[in-house]
Computed example of a mutant assay.
Amino acid sequence: MTANGKATPPVNGPRRAADVLKVFSTDPGPKRVTDLSLATGLSPATASRIASGLVDSSLLARKPDKSFVPGPGLIELARAVLTDIDIVG
């Protein structure tokens, strides 16, 4: 709740960041801000801010041509997921 008693709006940041990451699973390869914007429906400014934040956390990496690619932090997350999967059954 806010100070005036109104409900606070839901947090969209994590969902938007997930949407940006999912672009790479449905369409592999380097992406420019314009590609991320078109694929997610986010404004280019918002897509750029989110992608830059994901670079800061190593979930995306930035290439010299300014495009984005999946980052090494995704390997760490995948490893954590794989340790919890019982593949033998």
Rank of each mutant, 00 (worst) to 15 (best):
M1G: 12
T2Q: 07
A3C: 06
T8F: 04
P9R: 13
P9I: 06
P10D: 10
P10L: 04
P10M: 08
G13T: 15
P14S: 14
P14V: 09
R16N: 06
R16V: 02
D19V: 00
D19G: 04
L21E: 05
K22P: 00
V23K: 07
V23D: 00
V23L: 02
F24R: 07
F24A: 04
S25A: 10
S25C: 07
D27W: 07
P28E: 09
P28I: 06
G29V: 00
G29D: 00
P30F: 13
K31D: 05
K31G: 05
K31P: 03
R32N: 02
V33I: 10
D35S: 01
L36F: 05
L36H: 04
L36N: 01
L38P: 08
A39V: 08
G41A: 06
G41T: 03
G41Q: 03
L42R: 04
P44N: 08
R49G: 01
R49M: 03
I50D: 05
I50P: 03
V55T: 09
D56N: 08
S57M: 06
S57I: 11
S57H: 04
S57R: 08
S58C: 03
S58Q: 13
R62H: 01
K63Y: 02
P64Q: 15
S67N: 10
F68P: 01
F68H: 09
F68S: 06
F68G: 05
V69H: 08
V69N: 15
V69T: 15
P70K: 15
P70C: 12
G73S: 03
I75N: 13
A80C: 02
L82F: 06
T83R: 15
I85Y: 03
D86M: 06
D86T: 15
I87T: 12
I87K: 06
I87P: 05
I87V: 11
G89A: 04
G89E: 11
G89I: 06
